[in-house]
């Protein structure tokens, strides 16, 4: 009964950043609920391995596609490849976000942040959302249906409390949330609402999913400091995003559009 309410059987779902920490959970979750998943990632090896893993576990073929989403031509090729193979795209989960090639520049203090680094991150965190929505939308509009989900962030809604970064590390390196990320994710929310109203006459729903901080190997200090900011007192498990995602992707949310669904343990409630 439960699975029929959030059923994605027969739906073609494209997930960008599909092989990342959250992306691979999203792909598995969508596949488990019946979707034909297309894993779009810049890392070919990770995408291919995930596809094999999904096929082994769910018995469902998943299509890996390598794509640099910063390049409009590559985005078009990716979308054309999906449509050529499956004939349509029912669900777009635009989830890719940028990792910098230069961590020192990425985590630099705001006063010293370079425009080059700002643009490098914007190119993937916001510009690519535009490019992918445009390329996929061209196929969804004539079909008069589709569900688009953008991964946003709590830092597109509220500012980070800088105190949580004191002594915090990820993979042995001090971390913070740079302003470009917050600005890009706030932009994602604007794009989400714009497209929700713009494509509503064509039966396409557009919503955002905002995960709170997810356990993914941060050091103990960060986990503690972050958790103290959260009413539920802990970081999220990646699996806790799946319920909201599958609901948004499925017909169970048929009257929901232009919304930002925040899964943050209450962080933005106080």
């Amino acid at each position: 009964m439960a699975s029929t309410r959030f059923d994605l059987t027969g739906k073609v779902a494209v997930v960008t950043g599909g092989a990342g920490i959250l992306g691979r959970r999203f792909c598995r979750g969508l596949a488990e609920h019946g979707a034909q998943v297309v894993i779009v990632d810049i890392n070919e090896e990770h995408a291919t391995r995930l596809a094999a893993d999904i096929a082994r576990r769910s018995g469902r073929h998943a299509l890996p596609i390598t794509c640099d989403l910063r390049d409009p031509a590559e985005v078009r090729r990716m979308v054309d490849a999906v449509v050529a193979k499956y004939g349509r795209i029912d669900v777009l989960h635009s989830n890719a976000a940028g990792k910098s090639s230069d961590p020192a520049a990425f985590f630099a203090p705001f006063e010293e942040y370079s425009l080059a680094q700002w643009r490098e991150i914007m190119a993937i965190d916001l510009d690519a959302m535009f490019l992918v929505a445009q390329a996929v939308g061209r196929h969804m509009v004539p079909r008069k249906s589709g569900s688009v989900i953008h991964t946003a962030s709590i830092y597109g809604v509220v500012a980070p409390d800088q105190r949580i970064y004191e002594g915090s590390e990820y993979e042995g390196r001090p971390i913070n949330t740079p302003a470009v990320y917050a600005a890009a994710k706030a932009g994602v929310l604007g794009l989400t609402r714009y497209l929700a109203a713009y494509w509503a006459p064509h039966g396409i729903r557009v919503n955002a999913l905002t995960p709170g901080g997810v356990e993914s190997g941060q050091n103990e200090t960060f986990q503690q400091r972050y958790s103290q900011r959260v009413p539920l007192g802990r970081m999220a498990r990646p699996s806790e995003m799946i319920g909201a995602l599958v609901w948004l992707a499925s017909d169970a949310s048929s009257y929901v559009t232009g919304q930002n669904i925040v899964v943050d343990g209450g962080l933005t409630a106080w």
Binding site: A197, L232, E240, M241, G243, V256, Q259, V263
Partner: peptide
């Protein structure tokens, strides 16, 4: 439990009414 990390949220089911 599908929303075990959600609390304090207001979810609009409004056909986009509040999005514009």
């Amino acid at each position: 439990d599908a929303s075990s990390y959600m609390t304090g949220q207001n979810i609009s089911v409004d056909g986009g009414w509040t999005a514009w």
